[in-house]
Design a protein around this nucleic acid. Structure first.
Length: 812
RNA sequence: GCGAAUGUGGCGGAAUUGGUAGACGCGCAUGGUUGAGGGCCAUGUGGCCACUUAACGGCCGUGGGGGUUCAAGUCCCCCCAUUCGCACCA
């Protein structure tokens, strides 16, 4: 766009964002202004944002929202006198890069390096105050050496194991997926239908930490919702294991139940189609063909079908197999049904149709008896599942008890008689820890025909990715590393004989599970991070990232951290003190941004046209930080107009005294901006700055000190402009300038507006001196013309006075 | 199905402990910037009615319905809608 010559004349006083932003970025980085000082004397503050995946398309506006928030906090903390660690890095292993590399025939290393360099440039153009000297890249051998080292420790502590199971396999991406990555039977990434495949895969025994992951949540400061999601994901439930002997056999069925109190209401058993007892007791089974056909059908059912048909309670009775009730010794039929899952609990349940909805539905479909053992509902109509009220009936030694007591009594009895025991079950499963792809950390294990699985000696780490030309995985889902002879063939570190390397690589979650520790000591080649440094910087004081990472990533990171604490590598039990999550930025059309919808906003364009400061102010102002909200181009202009206004306000700065009203406004602004930033209400913090600037702009002139204060408040949001104007006032850089503090005494003006109302309706407003007493206020109200008009002919019954706020006259 | 959150102008969104609803921004309108457009600046802007010589004024209004209270966006009960999370979890 051409700038008219009228504007050109004034150009030296115009706000030129490009010039100013380049100037200050250069100066900040030339002076290492944001370098965090190990063992600094100031109190430390560690603010962390989730490091990005360096994709080819670079930064998107979601990154801007996620990073600007803690950028604001970090800049504010420096001004408050903290030694701030605000680092950044790249989570660079992963499929997109690898797929792109295959497509273009370029090595992923090269692509990763290019993307990182583009991304870093973009981050710098935002003026973010990251300490770039601590940059971390998960694909750097000096980094993944320590990822592998942690894996070895897990292996040595029996927390990493190999097991053959059915896995979710995506035939298109040619990788094994976790349950979370294949929800609805579709691949998380490409949407292809996932198939089941039997494979030997690695697991991390995260379930062993389930209880501590739950406990550790207590100390985490975060939204209730985030805690709830983590708790839900761990899915703890308390109950009991109960053993049901199989009639005429040594076998028994072990079930998990949260309702041992209903044991006397168990009228049949249900086992999952995959339950091993079916093959163990196959001789007894009289209807093998029917069972096998049901098993086949269950296996063929996609996730989708299982969901859609979840109301149908299909199943087949196992003829010839009967369970024995542990107390009544009654014989109970056994059914196979796919509403019981092999991977939850024991894969077998005692069905209590009177008090469980699913069992109720199944019993009705298959004409099975329903025995009421808790009085209080109407089991003719539906299962009675309430646990608060109701008393046990038909239940021998627990008759007459309420549910809670009955559970306790039953559990005691089960344990005393050796028929079962109290048990805790978790929904969370062990962490499937593998990828059959090239671009990931090789798992540092050697398979020796003599010694079995042998860990690579720590001195030999890292196990580097071999240089290869071809990184495509094989059709059957074998890692591409398997075809690299010189990588696979090695010698056993234990016996010296020929052996083979593990060829699976780690999942992308690996490198991100500990990166925040590496920032603390990024170049250490002796340990993953120096212990005293960890002691100095941990915990992370504030960790911000995506809502979608609240369960997986955050739990994985907490798990590794807890483990590292156990083996004495880190000094704290939990890694994070506070966790926040930003809402999504939608496209201008209100839809999720996507290339296919053509509604993607490129932050770099915004920087070009309006400047980084404008983008920063806008993204903070756009709406409630935790809520998703659409992008608006005209909203960006509004942010720019605000900065232009600040720029023009500089012309009004002079040797004057501000009026009381403006001074009061300034101090309200200080207090408000401070509070709002801490409360994650960045949008109202910006609006308060706008209000002050509007107010100040109405004046002929404003004082130097008021303007300086404004610039300091603005600095975390729009540091380039703040620095520039501050310098023009003849001051030093704002990076460590003290953040303003509100003066309580000046907070409120001498006069306040008091609302006068009749029967709750505002009828007049009046200005009075602050803290005018009740009696005076009441008199003022009753003397008021307009109040008299509305009370005329009425009987004044009551006058309510709230000092400094309102007077309400109640008249009938 | 279960659980949670949210619902406020044309739009994004504000409103300590119940105490001026709609801050701030966008958009829009009018005027200015002495050609136009853009940009910028100023003023106005919840709806309806009245007034219109100008100021003033009235009623309604925070998803819907009830309730508590001098006073309700805010507290209580019922309902509706949207979004998110979990989803045969025994």
């Amino acid at each position: 766009m051409r700038i008219g010559c009228f504007l050109f004349r004034r150009s030296e006083t115009m706000y030129n964002h490009k010039e100013i932003e380049e100037k200050w970025q250069e100066r900040w980085f030339a002076t290492d202004a944001f370098k965090a000082e190990d063992f600094g004397e100031k109190p430390k503050y560690y603010s962390l944002v989730e490091f990005p995946y360096p994709s080819g398309t670079g930064m998107h506006v979601g990154h801007i929202r996620a990073y600007t928030s803690l950028e604001v906090v970090s800049r504010k903390r420096r001004m408050e006198g903290y030694n701030v660690l605000f680092p950044i890095g790249f989570d660079a292993f992963g499929l997109p890069t690898e797929n792109y590399a295959m497509e273009k025939g370029v090595h992923p290393r090269k692509i990763t390096d290019e993307n990182i360099s583009i991304f870093t440039g973009q981050l710098k153009r935002m003026g973010y105050s990251f300490d770039f000297s601590r940059l971390v890249d998960t694909t750097d051998p000096d980094y993944y050496k320590w990822t592998q080292w942690i894996f070895l420790q897990l292996f040595k502590h029996d927390l990493a194991y190999r097991s053959t199971t059915n896995v979710n396999f995506c035939p298109s991406c040619k990788v094994v997926l976790s349950n979370e990555e294949s929800q609805g039977g579709e691949c998380d990434r490409c949407g292809s239908t996932v198939v089941q495949k039997e494979k030997d895969v690695w697991f991390l025994r995260i379930t062993r930490y389930a209880e501590r992951l739950l406990e550790g949540l207590e100390s985490l400061e975060t939204l209730p919702r985030i805690k709830r999601e983590q708790r839900n994901w761990i899915g703890k439930s308390e109950g009991a294991h109960i053993y049901f002997p199989i009639a005429d056999s040594d076998e028994q069925l072990k079930v998990f139940t949260t309702r041992p109190d209903t044991l006397f209401g168990a009228t049949f058993m249900v086992i999952a189609p995959e339950h091993p007892i079916l093959s163990r007791e196959s001789e007894k089974i009289e209807n093998k063909a029917a069972i096998e056909s049901y098993q086949r059908k269950a296996k063929e059912k996609t996730e989708f079908e299982r969901k859609e048909l979840s109301k149908d309670k299909s199943g087949v009775k196992v003829e010839g197999l009967e369970a024995v009730h542990p107390f009544t010794k009654d014989r109970i039929p056994v059914f196979v049904a796919d509403y019981v899952m092999m991977d939850y609990g024991t894969g077998a349940i005692m069905a209590v149709p009177a008090h469980d909805d699913r069992d109720y539905a199944f019993a009705h479909e298959h004409d099975l008896p329903v025995v009421e053992v808790i009085k209080g509902g109407d089991i003719e109509r539906e299962a009675y599942t309430d646990v608060e009220e109701g008393t046990l009936v038909n239940s021998d030694f627990i008759n007459g008890l309420d549910v809670a007591d009955a559970i306790e009594t039953m559990n005691d009895r089960l344990e005393a008689d050796g028929l079962g025991e109290r048990a805790v079950n978790y929904k969370m499963k062990d962490w499937a820890f593998n990828r059959q792809r090239y671009w990931g950390e090789p798992i540092p294990i050697i398979h020796c025909p003599q010694c079995g699985m042998v860990p690579v000696p720590e001195d030999d780490l890292p196990v580097s990715l071999p240089e290869v030309d071809e990184v495509a995985p094989s059709e059957d889902g074998e890692s591409p590393l398997a075809s690299v002879e010189e990588f696979v063939h090695t010698t056993c570190p234990s016996c010296g004989g020929p052996a083979e390397r593990e060829t699976d690589t780690m999942p992308q979650w690996a490198g991100s599970s500990w990166y925040f520790l590496r920032y603390i000591d990024p170049d250490n080649d002796r340990v993953l991070a120096n212990y005293p440094k960890l002691e100095y910087w941990l915990n992370v004081d504030w960790y911000n990232g995506g809502m979608e990472h609240v369960t997986r990533h955050v739990i994985y990171a907490r798990f590794w951290h807890q483990f590292l604490y156990d083996i004495g590598v880190v000094p704290t039990k939990e890694p994070f003190r506070k966790r926040t999550a930003q809402g999504l930025i939608l496209g201008p059309d209100g839809n999720k941004m996507s290339k296919s919808k053509g509604n993607v906003v490129d932050p770099v364009d915004v920087i070009e046209t309006y400047g980084a400061d404008t983008l920063r102010v806008y993204i903070m102002f756009i709406g409630d930080y935790e809520q998703s909200t659409p992008w608006s181009e005209s909203g960006v202009k509004g942010a720019r107009r605000f900065l232009d206004k600040v720029w023009r306000l500089y012309e009004k700065v002079g040797d004057v005294e501000d009026d009381d009203a403006l001074t009061a406004e300034l101090h309200r602004t200080i207090a408000g901006v401070d509070e709002d930033i801490e409360a994650v209400k960045f949008n109202t913090a910006v609006s308060k700055l706008m209000t002050f600037v509007n107010e100040a702009s109405k004046r002929e002139a404003i004082s130097v000190s008021a303007f300086e204060t404004l610039l300091r408040l603005l600095n975390p949001f729009a540091p380039h402009m703040a620095e520039e104007l501050n310098e023009r006032l003849g001051n030093d850089s704002l990076v460590f300038a003290p953040f303003p503090e509100a003066d309580e005494k000046k907070l409120e003006a001498e006069k306040v507006t008091v609302v006068l109302s009749v029967n709750g309706k505002v009828r007049a407003k009046t200005e009075v001196a602050k803290d005018t007493d009740k009696e005076t206020l009441e008199r003022i109200a009753l003397d008021n013309d307009r109040i008299q008009r509305f009370t005329e002919g009425k009987d004044i019954q009551k006058v309510i006075v709230v000092p400094n706020k309102l007077v309400n006259v109640v008249a009938q």
